[in-house]
Computed example of a mutant assay.
Amino acid sequence: MAARRSPLALLVASLAVLAAVASADSWLYEKFNTDGTVRADYDASGQQVAMLNLDRSSGAGFNSKEQYLYGEFSIQMKLIPGNSAGTVSCFYLTSGDSDDHDEIDMEFMGNSTGQPVVLNTNVWASGDGKKEHQFDLWFDPAADYHTYTIIWNPTNIIFKVDGNVIRCFKRYADLPYPSSRPMALHATLWDGSYWATEKGKVPIDWSGAPFVVSYRSYSADACVSGGACPAGSDRWMNKQPDAAEWGTIKWAESNYMRYNYCEDGWRFTQGLPAECSRS
């Protein structure tokens, strides 16, 4: 008959297993600096979860210790339940705050209970932004985690939601494109009342604070600034949407697009940006 293990031995063994799992997935403090109220925990599967808090006093965020020049960046997010109007939750790359900075944005603009959360995608190149495509999310982003991905390579920038390509921003040789400035990865939660919901008409209802956004399963398969690219980087370095992925882009545009800068003649009174007339 096999010897029975004592409850204490079983507890020690269980804690050792949990510690090993947690250690294998401890991405937050290993890869990022934090700002504001950021808490870390582990879910039942052993995945580390980073939780950003927003209240009247401050927002929160984390930013990568490394800078990158091209890569595939992915994270799972669970957004604010209920009335999230006025809040902005972000997953983005930026080269800094200078007037000529580069940036690639996925910004989630909260909304009143029952209304869709809007995903704002944008690209800045040499300080030139105003290239937004906005989509109503076709699911409840607070009910569970969903995966958001940015692929950035010398040819194009691809935005994905749960593996579905929803936008491709192409590079043209004669137009600005993020290609020379290394960028850090950021996640933030902040008060965007002046802008986010119905162009600032609906502010944050602070009676619901603190607001919390959870992040998990972060991955960066990317070229580190000043270093070599990882093995297998051709998978995303040469990535362009295939026919099926252009199909999901058309599906997202036809069914869920709320705003397309290339259709905003009121904003661009001197003419639409040059890329808007190209295929």
Rank of each mutant, 00 (worst) to 15 (best):
S58H: 11
Y194A: 15
Y261S: 08
A252M: 10
F73E: 02
P241C: 03
A24H: 07
F268K: 03
L18H: 12
S277R: 11
A274V: 06
D55F: 06
M106V: 09
I166S: 05
D144P: 10
Y259F: 14
D234Q: 13
A50L: 04
R278P: 03
N111T: 12
Y70H: 07
F159H: 05
I150T: 05
N153K: 03
F91M: 10
D264P: 01
D162K: 02
L10Q: 14
R216V: 04
W206G: 12
D242C: 08
P203V: 06
E245K: 01
A9Q: 11
W190K: 04
N83S: 12
K130A: 14
D221P: 01
N156A: 14
P273D: 07
S233M: 02
A9T: 10
P241D: 07
S279M: 11
D102K: 08
A173T: 13
A22Q: 12
L15S: 12
S58D: 09
G208A: 09
V88T: 11
K131V: 04
I166E: 06
A142Q: 07
Y177Q: 05
T149W: 08
L79F: 04
G192P: 00
R267F: 15
I157Y: 00
S179Q: 06
S225P: 00
G114Y: 03
K170R: 14
E263Q: 15
N83R: 09
D55A: 11
F62S: 01
S58E: 11
S193M: 05
K201T: 12
Q240N: 09
W266R: 14
S14N: 14
P203S: 10
D242L: 10
N53P: 00
R4I: 12
Y194T: 15
S57F: 08
S254V: 09
W190F: 13
G192C: 06
R258V: 15
G46R: 08
G96N: 09
S254A: 15
L185M: 14
E72N: 12
R235D: 13
D162W: 06
D105Q: 10
P178I: 03
K170A: 14
H186K: 13
H101E: 08
C223R: 06
F91W: 01
S126W: 11
Y194M: 10
W190A: 09
R258F: 07
T34D: 01
S225A: 15
A40I: 07
P7G: 08
L272P: 01
I151Y: 00
A2P: 13
D242H: 09
R235A: 15
T87I: 02
E275Y: 08
N260Y: 12
E263N: 15
M237V: 09
L18Q: 13
V88Y: 04
T87E: 06
G86L: 03
A142H: 03
R167V: 05
A220L: 03
W251L: 14
A173Q: 09
L54G: 00
K65Y: 10
P203L: 08
F91G: 02
C276S: 08
S58A: 15
A142V: 08
N260Q: 07
Y92V: 02
S277L: 05
